[in-house]
Simulated scan of single mutants.
Amino acid sequence: MKNFILLAVAFICFSTLNAQKNDIKLQTKYGSDNEELHDLLRFQDVETIKLTFIGEDLKGKNYRLLVKEYTNGSLAKTDTIMDSAKFEYIPVISDSVFEFKYYVKTQSNNTIKMNFMFDRFSTPKVYDIKASEDKYALHDFLKTTEPMSVKLNTETLIMGYFLPYIDKESGWKKYCDVSGSKHSPEDWGTAFNIPNYYLIEILFE
């Protein structure tokens, strides 16, 4: 019986240490600290966010960035923006901090331009707009001001770029009601009658 108790305690301690090891946190920061640059981005209707991942378990890991486009309630396309394991010139993460910036803009030629900017390179992507009468908005998936947990070997939603929900009673266009709702982001199209939106995921492995 004594040996069984010791084994159970050891298992609990191992589980606790393993959970702590996989403790990666995401922090986000919108806009620019430079006032003139911030105003210029707003003038050009460019939304930008800096994503900072922190955790010892990042070291030695590769990463994948995915953009998933949803149209009329269904997943229409999945694009792999970056898969660091497939490019020799992109090393594995060597530090406990990994970060990049994301820029996105709805352009006058009915396209959406996205750009993921890292220290030494960037990965632009252009999509055709499916509904041009409303403005898209960028939101992260942090529920509070506290950092968000990110698990290893699991695709994690980190951002959404989406059209608003039109409140039938007031006629107002609402964005926070979408990103802060109880509905899964994959179900936004049918839950809010949103014709087109994009979800950005990251995977560390």
Rank of each mutant, 00 (worst) to 15 (best):
F100N: 07
M1W: 11
L203Y: 14
Y197L: 02
I24N: 05
A76N: 14
F4L: 14
H183F: 15
L58I: 03
Y63W: 08
G160D: 07
L157Q: 09
S132Q: 09
E99Y: 13
S179L: 00
L66H: 09
L41D: 07
Y103I: 01
P91T: 08
V46H: 01
F141W: 10
T48F: 00
Y103Q: 08
S170K: 06
P195R: 06
K174F: 05
Q27P: 00
V104W: 00
I49K: 00
M114T: 10
N34H: 05
E146A: 12
P147T: 03
G60E: 03
E47I: 00
F162S: 14
L66R: 09
F141I: 06
K113D: 14
S94H: 02
F11K: 06
L163F: 07
N153Y: 12
I194F: 05
Y30S: 06
L157I: 13
S181I: 04
N62Q: 06
M82L: 15
V178Y: 02
L142F: 00
V150A: 03
F14A: 15
S108A: 12
G180M: 11
Y197P: 05
S94W: 03
K130N: 10
V9P: 01
K151Q: 14
V178T: 04
S179H: 07
D83P: 03
E88M: 10
K101F: 06
Y197M: 04
I90D: 03
H139A: 11
V97Q: 08
E88K: 13
F87I: 11
A8H: 02
D187N: 15
Y102D: 04
Y102H: 12
